Simulated assay, not measured.
Amino acid sequence: MVNFNGKLYSKGESILGPNNRGLKYGDALFETARFVNGTIFFWEDHYFRLMASMRILRMEIPMEFTLEFLEEEIKRTVSKNNLEDKAVRVRLTIFRNDGGMYNPVTNEVSYVIDVSPLESPYYIINDGDYEVELFKDYFVNKDMLSNLKTSNKILNVVASVYAKENGYDNCLLINTDKQVVEVINGNLFLVKDGLVKTPSLDDGCLDGIIRKKLIEIIDSITDLEVIEESISPFELQKADELFITNSITGIQPISKYRKKMYDNIVSRSLLGKLNAKARLG
Rank of each mutant, 00 (worst) to 15 (best):
G6S: 09
L8N: 03
K11T: 11
L16W: 01
N19G: 10
F35L: 14
N37Y: 07
F42N: 11
L50Q: 04
S53P: 07
R55E: 05
M63Y: 07
T66W: 09
E68Y: 13
L70A: 10
I74C: 00
R76Y: 01
R89K: 15
T93W: 01
I94D: 06
R96V: 01
G100H: 08
M101I: 13
N103F: 04
S110L: 03
N126F: 00
L134S: 02
F135R: 06
S151I: 07
N152S: 12
A159L: 05
A159H: 02
A163V: 07
K164W: 07
E165Y: 08
C171Q: 04
L172I: 03
K178M: 15
Q179E: 15
F189K: 06
V191F: 08
V191M: 04
G194F: 06
V196Q: 07
K197L: 13
T198S: 08
T198P: 02
P199I: 09
S200Y: 03
L201W: 09
L201E: 00
G204L: 08
C205V: 13
L206G: 08
I209K: 12
K212E: 13
K213E: 15
L214C: 11
I217P: 01
I217Q: 02
E225S: 14
E228A: 11
S230C: 10
S232L: 12
P233D: 12
F234N: 13
L236R: 01
Q237R: 11
A239C: 11
A239M: 00
T245H: 06
K256I: 00
K259P: 04
I265K: 15
R268K: 15
K273Y: 02
L280P: 03
